[in-house]
Each structure stands twice: as C-alpha cells, then as structure tokens.
Nucleic acid binder design. Structure first.
Lengths: 245, 245
DNA sequence: CAGTGGTCTAGACCACCTG
DNA sequence: AGGTGGTCTAGACCACTGC
C-alpha cells in the first residue's frame, strides 16, 4: 500500500534546492526558508526525505537549522576554498564556483608497494604488490594549485588508459569497473615539497605545503587507492563544517 | 499510542557502542557486527535510532557499513591524529587515546574588532565591537603542540574568569551561560608562525605551521567566537573521514 | 500558547551481495 | 532466494523559541 510516488528523492532534491538557493528562489530577505511542513508540501516528500536533504545541504554549508527558530541559508564560504566534505570531486566542486581545474602534466608507471613514497595509514598490503603510480600537476584557473601523487592497486584496477589521466580519475574508475568508492580517510598535514613540485609552484624545494593524504576504499571496504595531494600553501584553504549536538 | 520506552537514545547508545567496540565486546573475528535487526533487538530500539547511532559511529571512524554485506569495525586511526569531526573538544578526544592536554600559558585582554589579528570569514562585526582575546599555549603529553588564539564576542560572553582559561573553554561557556554552540566553520591552511609561537615550539619565527581557523556559532546562528589554532607541523596530523553516496 | 526543528516508532520497498 | 544495508512513508512525541 505504498508509493514511491514522490516527485523527488534525496539526491535530486538536494541538487534542486542548491539551485534554488544559488538563484535566490528560496528564502526570505533574512535568508529564512519555509518551515519543514511547508517544504514537504512544496516538494511532495515526507519529513524523512526532506530532513535528509536538509542535512546534506547543511553538510555542504548551504544552510543551517536552528531549533525552534527555523532554517536559514548561510553566507557563502570564502572564495576558492576546497570543501573537505565534498563528495563530487575537485573538478566539479570548483565548477560550481565557476573555476576550471586542468591537469597540465601526468606521469604513470608501475611500482611495488616497497617502492612507494608513502603508504596508507592502515593496510595489509604486502611489499611485492603492484601499484599504478600516477603523478598529476593540476591548475585552478590556470594557476598552479596542486600536485597529486596517487597509487592504485593493480589487483583492483588493472590499468588506466592515458586518456583518462587528464580527467576525473575516480569518475573513470567508477564508470569502467562498476566499482564504487564507498569512503575515504583523509589525513591533513604540512610537509616540505621536493624540487619538481617546487618548480611547478614557483617555490624552492623545501618550501612547505598543505598536504591531504586520501585512502580510498570501495563500498565493500576494500582499499582501492591512496594518494597524497600537495597544495600550494599560499593559495589553498580547506574548508569544513561541523555541527554539534 | 506510543512509547519512549526504548532503553537507549542515540547519544547513550553511541557511547555504549563505542565502549563495546573498544572493549572488543562486539563484532566477530573479522570485525563484523551483528545485522541491523539483531542490533535493534539487542538494544531495544527501532531502526531509525540504530541507524542514526551507526551513522555517528561511522562519522567518528569506528565502523563502516557495506551495502548488502554488513557492518564492520574499522582499524584504528593513526596514533595521535586529531579528528576534525570530533564533537567533544580536544581534551576529551585526546583522553580517549590516553593522552593529556595541558594549558601551560595564557593571556587575556580586551580588544576591538579593528585590533584583531584576524577575523571570521564572514561576519557583520563592526570595527568598534569589543572582543575578549585569549592566547593559550597547550601541550599534549607535555610536548608543545599548539597555540590557540581565540576571540570571544564580549556582547555574548561578557567575561571569562581566569580559572576557566586552563580548562575547556567551551565547556565553561556552555555551563555558565546556557548558550549552546551549534556549529563551527573550520578553515585549514598553512601559515608562518611568529616569534612567540616559535619559541614555544622550538622553531624559528617564519617556520610553517598547520592552522585551523574555527568560527563558532550558537545554535541560533549567532557568532560567539572565532579562533585560530597553530599546530606544530612536525607533530600534528588532522584526520577526517568521508562517506560517498 | 502556537510554531519551529529534533527524536523516535512502525513498517514498507529498493538495491546490493552472497550462495 | 535470502540476507544485508539504503531509502522512503506516515505519524507521534519531545524540546526549544517567540509571542
């Protein structure tokens, strides 16, 4: 006796409401959104679906909810900041801000675990396992912004065609292999850069950089890749949002 | 015709299950937890409550759920890493890892917004508003770890007794004022440190540091404080966990 | 007090994985 | 096919805020 007749699911409704917020189609002059019952009626969903959507929007920093008061759009984050909670990849996130990410140089080769420059924080890799090592230099709006050093487990991915290297790697992996990245551990730190990275950024070797090491797992829990991103510390801010309870 | 008869609510159940995981009381030899129906029965809660709890545990990095497979405990994070998603404050988070946070030096004074060394990323502060400026040098297991520079809005907090400065400031604020911190924006970057911070870390002025700027809001959306934490880049890793969908 | 968001129950259907 | 987690509906009660 049930339905699936709602006009929207969480994902669709999230995108729809982001559009509405960005276009100013929603919220009064103080940024207050309609109440939950009103939004439920407007979009034809139940409270669960609506609240999951609002939770997504909150996680992305678009709104916050105040108990007993209402739901409000949030002032925009600082320009160019990269959300640590984004779920769409750097290219797409920057596109939302009207910025263009390009990959200007790549190199690919195969190495063993023993030869890797770094390893996941926890893993049961054996030292003779084969990895595909990829180094990419990427720009944001044509300014050098980050160097990405990734290792993919050959036992999972097998091979990556050169054409894919200039686009969104995860997108390729998910499309071609039917694997789905389930979750990512990130460790943020500050490290000194090597000469090649320095050349790209226009900094001397030994200059600091903001680093993010991502260990990526399939939804089954299987490690699929680990990478370290070196950001130009002068140009990069990472952003996140934390809700207390 | 309803209830509130469950043995646990989300918060209680979260703490209970963290204990169970840490004590190894839950999960088989491969770290697999009982299925959701089994856990619902065991704890006497419905699926909503259970899944909200599991979501909390996931956000804290204790477990992950694999669609169609099961729920598994995760290997422990790297030692000493600071979770960006923690919701309990540094002191308590480190205590869970058996580490002790101490405040070894403080200074407090009042300044105006115009005199502040930095400002929130978005705010409507006027330049003559009064702020309570607090600088604290803190150690983790007696090793210098971070310097915290906080500004509290005097219009909200009024005053902070010196006794409170050596403990958990947010704890004091919430206890004394009945205000509740609702959410925090964090911006992570890499900045050079000044001489005083360098002295504390045993580094020269101009050395890099990992910085986290937190803008703290009451649950009403009112800005209450903003602070910048300078971490010794050699000793600090920040950790977070991201789930894809 | 009415209205807001926060938590919880009960139960259904959907999507994924394994045997 | 059967079991797992993921999404969704419907409706109730709880807690906070403002008038």
């Amino acid at each position: 006796m049930v339905q699936r007749e709602s006009k929207f699911d969480i994902k669709t409704l999230t995108n729809r409401m982001i559009q509405a917020i960005q276009n100013g189609e929603i919220g009064d002059d103080r940024g207050k959104l309609p109440s939950e019952p009103a939004l439920m009626a407007e979009y034809g969903v139940t409270r669960y679906t609506l609240r999951e959507t609002l939770a997504q929007l909150g996680k992305l920093g678009y709104i916050f909810q105040a108990h007993g008061i209402g739901t409000f759009v949030r002032p925009h984050h600082i320009d160019g900041a990269i959300s640590l909670q984004n779920v769409v990849g750097l290219t797409e996130e920057m596109a939302r801000q009207g910025k263009v990410v390009k990959t200007v140089a790549v190199s690919q080769r195969e190495v063993t675990v023993a030869e890797a420059d770094f390893l996941p924080d926890v893993s049961n890799l054996t030292s003779d396992q084969v990895l595909i090592s990829i180094i990419r230099q990427r720009t944001i709006d044509d300014a050098p912004a980050l160097v990405e050093h990734s290792y993919y487990l050959k036992s999972v991915i097998d091979s990556i065609p050169d054409e894919a290297l200039y686009g969104q790697l995860f997108g390729y992996v998910e499309q071609q292999t039917k694997f789905k990245v389930g979750f990512i551990d990130s460790v943020i730190g500050c490290e000194m850069i090597d000469a090649a990275t320095g050349d790209f950024f226009g900094l001397p070797a030994g200059a600091p950089s903001l680093t993010v090491q991502d260990d990526s797992y399939l939804s089954s829990g299987q490690l699929v890749a680990f990478s370290k991103l070196y950001y130009d510390y002068r140009a990069t801010k990472l952003f996140m949002f934390k809700k207390m309870h």
